[in-house]
């Protein structure tokens, strides 16, 4: 009798487990059939064309959302900055349309006040995050407009194109920047902006303080002396209060304008390469 019982027990357990598994499998199959969400296959195809890094530069949460917006909401196809020309071509090719590529833009930090030239009036002890520091009145940098260098921008950058130098200043590496603009939205002092990659003349200061005040806390801050504006005859550089601002819509040909700046606030920089970074 005994030898028979053992196989029986094995058969029973195998049968129970097997049948349970079969039942579950059937349930899954039914769920896949009846609960499936049908989606436009074009969305799938367009998502394939996109880089898939979900950076949000197009203004949507991710690549798939952008693909859906192109199909369903007639969004323009040239909004994907990281993808550039290749992506645009792929999208146009699939949809059978022609579209104009946008100008490639890269992010730029409008502050040159690293620890060597900009004064710190106090030592900050708190969360190592610019947004958090700004909410309790800054990180001790005397200039209330300058880069705090706590790296909030670097942390949101999807491609690690932003470096925080040893001197606590954020620098964007343009050759790595995909132009998604995440850092622009993050910087609590609005120090980062997108500039056309081809431009070389930049005024790295956002301080609205008057010259004598700026001089007190920063060696490379704009003091509003007006010399650069005169040098270009107001074409491409204008004054905003006590701050000289480059108008990126107007090209500046003569790079020698940088030499007129007594504070070295104006820099000449190849937009495709990093300079001055460590």
């Amino acid at each position: 009798m005994l030898p028979l019982i053992v196989p029986l027990a094995i058969i029973t357990s195998t049968a129970v487990i097997g049948l349970t598994g079969l039942g579950c499998g059937l349930l899954l199959a039914m769920a896949a059939r009846f609960l499936a969400v049908r989606e436009d296959e074009r969305i799938e195809a367009l998502t394939e064309c996109l880089p898939g890094i979900n950076c949000g530069a197009c203004g949507l949460a991710g690549c798939r959302d952008y693909a859906r917006a192109i199909i369903e909401d007639d969004m323009p196809v040239n909004l994907c900055k990281p993808g550039g020309d290749d992506t645009l071509k792929a999208l146009c090719g699939y949809l059978g349309i022609v579209a104009q590529a946008g100008v490639r833009e890269v992010a730029l930090v409008f502050c040159g006040g690293h620890n060597g030239v900009a004064k710190r009036q106090a030592t900050y002890n708190g969360i190592a995050d610019c947004v958090a520091a700004e909410r309790i009145g800054g990180d001790g940098k005397a200039c209330p407009f300058g880069c705090m260098g706590l790296g909030s921008c670097a942390r949101v950058c999807p491609v690690n194109a932003i470096e925080i130098t040893a001197q606590r200043l954020a620098i964007v590496h343009p050759e790595l920047c995909i132009g998604c603009g995440a850092c622009v939205k993050t910087c609590p002092r609005s120090l980062i902006a997108m500039v056309p990659e081809s431009r070389t003349i930049h005024i790295l200061c956002r301080s609205k303080d008057r010259g004598p005040v700026v001089r007190k806390y920063c060696e490379v801050g704009c003091i509003g002396c007006n010399r650069c504006v005169k040098a270009v005859d107001k074409k491409g550089i204008t004054m905003d209060g006590a701050l000289a601002v480059v108008d990126y819509a107007v090209p500046i040909e003569d790079v020698s304008v940088a030499e007129t700046c007594p504070q070295s606030t104006i820099v000449v920089r190849d937009g495709r390469r990093t300079e001055g970074a460590s």
């Binding site: 708190g126 969360i127 995050d129 947004v131 958090a132 909410r135 309790i136």
Partner: peptide, 9 residues
């Protein structure tokens, strides 16, 4: 931990 700064933020 800088709790209050976390809260404020």
């Amino acid at each position: 931990r800088p709790m209050v700064q976390h809260m404020k933020n």
